[in-house]
Design a protein around this nucleic acid. Structure first.
Lengths: 343, 343
DNA sequence: CTGAAAGCGCTAACAT
DNA sequence: ATGTTAGCGCTTTCAG
């Protein structure tokens, strides 16, 4: 049933030329005369020839493929990055092999091994929240496969990275709020053992201190990056009757949790409690009120990561590691645009 | 600089055995004694051996790889499907090669060709909105590569498909609304040359007719699947002072557009105008009011598609094409839960 | 239980 | 301009 695939050989046989001639012709090698090239291409088309990339790569020792490892797909931030990377790869005639770790370290390690086994020319990775063991990255390095870390960066020497200036983004948000008149500001901080959590908290603190605003430790709550955490944290403060005037959340789902909790207890945003979050998503425009945020430009991340990887792949000798830091933008919508007195 | 990768041969040389023995041992072939197997595995580990999948696949004439073609990634529906498929593939020791057509026919065709060239064992695809030329699918078929279409299904004989019963989903929503007491119901219908648009409109009409409710053609507006279309359509009706009591939108972004427009002109949902949409997304819970919808169970799509493809790959002889239709669920949240008199 | 031989489909290097 | 030779790294017979 399975129609045997047409090979170079089949074309060669039919045309009474050698395989090499066919191979060269199909790749527009100048060796071959325009006439034969044309002839060969035509019969290839006619026979329905598809090259066998496996064989080609094996022989050419190059895969024209870049491995991508992300913790999640169905998530606006990663979804955008992936889409951008695919587009850039397509423009450059590269294939992307995407793998998803689902925030699981073991799976991440396995995926990297698979990518190596597939002989990808380079790897772009955003590590899981749990990744602590960096041995696998050493292996990648020893293999001579270029790797660039995006967004979540492990603490290793001499690596390529494209990070967001998270701390500064937080500072921008908080300083804006302070200028508005806010003093009672809380922060739902996610996990601070992750760089994004850590940096955002750091930025929060720095902005507060710089402006001589007292930090109330009760208002800094750690615990997660999802809706339910935002909901829980808000409810805890609410029950203690100890809500700040403004809550700065580490991610936008956390802010969603706050919206939900506030609605449940009948508190109005932004009048009773105000909110601003880290991370942009289209739907924030459609919340009521529209949610202001610190935007991380995903296109710049993708662009830079691909630049670095392509550059590394295409240069013969060692390339100096590059560490790009991308600045965020403050996007003001319906929240955090004016000072609302405490509840 | 590039450390040459360890091969079977290197291991064989070091151990004074043949390549074959190593190859077999690494694959737990019963031929090899437990002792040698163990020894070989250890040295492989020690040397940091990674198999060359290219070579393996070329030799084994099987890639353990499934190609996936989708129009979009950064989109809740496809994001979920992709993530599910990756999970199932991982459980089954398959790799996924994901490609993104970006709703572009040419790109789609090219991707399929690449997948064939990569010798994927099967293809799962959701075609673009523009795909009209089905020749490429004939080619796939002739190659003997199993293919299953999901969600967006072309009109071809004898294909595997996993579709959503879109029409029925629409009927469920509209009949629910009618039971509530709604009669003045509009439909923002997207493009009806796409099966999802067509089917949903069909369902809308059927439910109305079945219940003897007059259909007002002014309230059926075609034009797109995104926020701006929802916004525009709403505004048009609003300016004509001709708003229905309930709007059923073809996708959830369209509903978002409605939310935005309504807020802008000071109309309250659900009291002034009510809304229900097709397609579920987590954030709908966080809108105000939470948006009710017809849910398309993405996990079932993925599960079924993978079942079919795996089954086709693993059976020697021709398998009867399967056409799965998945039923939707009505998820009621803050909208479309009670009848609100006309504006 | 182990290995020698052959070949998957292609390309690079070296003739002719 | 075209062809010959060799080999990429692995697996599948088939002999020992």
């Amino acid at each position: 049933m399975k129609a045997k695939a047409i090979t170079l050989n089949d074309i060669a046989a039919k045309l009474n030329v050698s395989t090499v001639t066919v191979s060269k012709a199909l790749r527009n090698h100048p060796d071959i005369s325009p006439a034969t090239t044309k002839l060969i291409k035509n019969t290839a088309e006619e026979l329905g020839y598809t090259p066998n990339i496996m064989a080609r790569n094996l022989s050419a020792r190059k895969s024209n493929t870049i491995g991508l490892v992300v913790p999640k797909i169905a998530h606006f931030f990663f979804g955008s990055i992936i889409e951008n990377i695919y587009d850039i790869a397509f423009e450059n005639n590269y294939e992307i092999i995407l793998t998803v770790s689902q925030e699981n370290t073991e799976r991440e390690k396995k995926h990297i091994q698979t990518l190596l086994a597939m002989k990808v020319d380079g790897i772009i990775i955003s590590i899981t929240q749990e990744t602590r063991d960096y041995e696998i990255f050493e292996i990648v390095k020893r293999r001579g496969v270029p790797i660039v870390f995006i967004d979540r960066i492990p603490q290793i020497e001499n690596i390529n990275s494209v990070a967001i200036n998270d701390k500064n983004g937080a500072i921008k948000a908080i300083e804006h709020a302070i200028k508005l008149g806010y003093k009672k500001i809380g922060h739902f901080a996610g996990y601070t053992n992750i760089n994004i959590g850590r940096e955002r908290l750091l930025g929060f603190k720095e902005a507060m201190e710089r402006n001589n605003i007292a930090i109330n430790p009760d208002w800094i709550i750690e615990g997660g990056f999802g809706e339910n955490y935002g909901y829980d944290a808000f409810m805890r403060l609410y029950k203690q009757n100890n809500l700040p005037d403004l809550i700065f959340t580490v991610t936008y789902p956390v802010a969603l949790g706050v919206y939900m909790a506030a609605a449940e207890v009948g508190l109005k945003i932004p009048d009773d409690v105000d909110v601003i979050c880290y991370g942009n998503a289209k739907v924030q425009n459609f919340l009521s009120p529209p949610l202001s945020c610190v935007d991380q430009p995903t296109d710049k991340i993708s662009r830079n990561a691909m630049d670095i990887i392509l550059h590394n792949i295409n240069s013969q000798d060692l390339v100096e590691p590059r560490n790009i830091v991308i600045e965020t933008d403050l996007i003001l919508r319906g929240t955090c645009t004016k000072f609302n007195k405490a509840t």
